[in-house]
Write a protein that binds this DNA or RNA. Sequence first.
DNA 1: TTAAAAAATCATATTAACATGATCAAACCA
DNA 2: TGGTTTGATCATGTTAATATGATTTTTTAA
Lengths: 141, 141
Amino acid sequence: MILSQTSVYALKAVLHLAETGGGDFVRVDDIAADLKVPRNYLSKILHALARTGVLDSTRGPHGGFRLGKNPAKLTLDEVLAPFDEVIGESACLLGRKRCSDANPCAAHDRWKGVYAGVKTFFQETTVADLARGAIPEITLH
Amino acid sequence: MILSQTSVYALKAVLHLAETGGGDFVRVDDIAADLKVPRNYLSKILHALARTGVLDSTRGPHGGFRLGKNPAKLTLDEVLAPFDEVIGESACLLGRKRCSDANPCAAHDRWKGVYAGVKTFFQETTVADLARGAIPEITLH
DNA sequence: TTAAAAAATCATATTAACATGATCAAACCA
DNA sequence: TGGTTTGATCATGTTAATATGATTTTTTAA
């Protein structure tokens, strides 16, 4: 897989909230059940997303998670940042820490262009781009 | 990392043989020392590459590993096939087993084109493309 | 035919990702 | 104010990738 399992869970959860959340708080248990993802594991992931502002959370009755940003302005890169670093250092095909035009690995020149496409995808695609159906107007707080 | 550590070792070893092997058998110990890669772990990897015909191996004095195919005809895809499946099922961003135009995940339409570039890179880039310096003429057996 | 050289294999250890169950702490409401 | 609802956290378990050390098997050459 391109993304780790954790990243896939994160992305699915955020899309789920964009598609069906309607700006309301949704319980972890409900999200976990809908997505068929382990409850406590998801809880930890959603908590990490709340820390970065991607999600918003409250406890107690009527608590849960909702989007913390406008989905049209929320890039996949922002969602995945706490988990995989899809972008950045991991860019080198041969696993180098530092790999640049000035100090390239054997694959650098040919891989560069391909990787640029991947990078752009994650930096420019938004949650709204991927969410199916009508995206409700969400009032941010 | 895009590729697993194992895949990186495999790719580095094959490039190393293309660049410096000169068609002769090279000992695992020497490759491992040059690449700074664990010896027995590399041995297992090279053995797997020999099974698919990418490499050729012999035991005993003057034994070791050498390329089993013309590097100009050896694609990265062929090298990595026993380890990661960079190409194929793992294609779906959201981790689906089956994800197609007919039965797409939320990311399918937008990811498809980007992924096609990655796929093409691995299918069309050859070991000779990445090997630095003169590639010696290798007599295949 | 025997000793050395080399890959092949085996048994085991380490680590990180992924997962589960139990408990804790905050928010809400009667 | 006390009980219920909910996220947050903790302790632990499982599994696969990565790694190490020891042993076995094959090949060559003296």
